[in-house]
Design a protein around this nucleic acid. Structure first.
Length: 309
DNA sequence: TATCGGGCCTGTAGGC
DNA sequence: TGCCTACAGGCCCGAT
């Protein structure tokens, strides 16, 4: 499932393979992947073709490619990409067979690597469940005054790996909320990039229960939680992301290995690794949370007296 | 205004 | 074998 580390892996791939190249053609195989581009498929195709990819940017799980028209000094719009829960952005050569669930294909201008090898001519957006999508979006000033962001991503908070992420501001916002910790971690307007998997992993690392009330957090506990988020995501990034199946791959179609390093998520009934190492008997339990699952250790992530499910 | 829950989607697994 | 149901989950929007 693409969360921040997976999207960052894809961003790096796009930076290496796609930046600096012109979009020469746009094929749309499934209009549902352009659901958020309200002007429609034709508008998307006509306006995107002929623009050059200036860079590859990311905030949380949103990835965007600022686009430059030949005569422009600065990009004024971007191709905003969200992978949803099954989206992939693959680079491929024309002779490679079309993958199943390919929704959008971009033909790229010819280019060569440093060694003179020709680069793949296509970028393919593949999305089995169509929760993700693309849109052409104007770039607007970020609400914190630093840089430009696509209009549709302007409401997204900075993520914990962003050098400009403000822990004190996050703590203050957390204290103002009247909800449970996990719900807050999944709120992309509060802190971005965290999905169900890394929320469980970060809460496990910080020994916090998912339903602990946000208003009970102290500043040191918030710092510990943010540090846990950063640590979990950095390790996932080093491993190339989390792959449970073929739903997440990098731009070259390769899977990541972080799933092997998960401590809580998906480990129902197994011993808690931390408790096991200490000779204790904690077990990972699975609980219903907002129509999905939450995993925690029965012993070191005890249910708080006050509880906000 | 803040919070919550349902809908969007498809493939897979499991039960019958 | 084939049908049905539950489940996975990020984001958006309407309801409370």
């Amino acid at each position: 499932m693409p969360e921040l580390p997976e999207v960052e892996v894809v961003r790096r791939g796009v930076e290496r393979w796609v930046v600096g190249r012109m979009v020469e053609s746009v094929q749309v195989f499934d209009a549902r992947s352009l659901r958020r581009h309200t002007a429609g498929v034709l508008d998307f195709q006509e306006r995107l073709a002929g623009l050059t990819v200036d860079s590859a940017q990311r905030r949380g799980k949103f990835l965007w490619l600022p686009l430059r028209d030949g005569a422009e000094a600065e990009p004024a719009r971007s191709l905003l990409v969200h992978l949803g829960m099954s989206g992939q952005l693959l680079v491929a050569s024309e002779d490679q067979p079309a993958p199943r669930h390919e929704r959008i294909r971009l033909g790229l201008s010819p280019s060569a690597s440093e060694t003179g090898e020709p680069l793949p001519e296509q970028a393919r957006f593949v999305d089995q469940r169509i929760f993700g999508g693309m849109l052409l979006d104007p770039l607007v000033p970020s609400t914190d005054g630093h840089g430009l962001v696509p209009e549709h991503a302007a409401h997204i908070a900075r993520d914990p790996l962003d050098p400009l992420f403000d822990v004190a501001a996050f703590h203050a916002a957390l204290r103002r909320r009247r909800t449970g910790l996990k719900r807050a971690l999944l709120d992309q307007g509060l802190i971005s990039g965290i999905g169900n998997i890394y929320a469980d992993e970060a809460l496990w690392a910080a020994r916090l229960h998912w339903a602990a009330p946000t208003e009970t957090m102290t500043a040191p506990r918030t710092r510990e939680l943010v540090a846990a988020c950063q640590e979990v995501m950095r390790r996932a990034l080093d491993a190339g992301g989390t792959s449970f199946d073929s739903l997440y791959v990098n731009v070259n179609g390769e899977s990541g290995y972080f799933a092997r390093s998960l401590n809580a998520y998906g480990r129902e009934g197994l011993p808690c690794p931390r408790c096991e190492a200490a000779g204790e008997d904690g077990v990972i339990v699975r609980e219903k949370f907002a129509n999905r699952s939450s995993y925690r250790c029965s012993r070191c992530q005890k249910r708080p007296r006050r509880f906000r499910p």
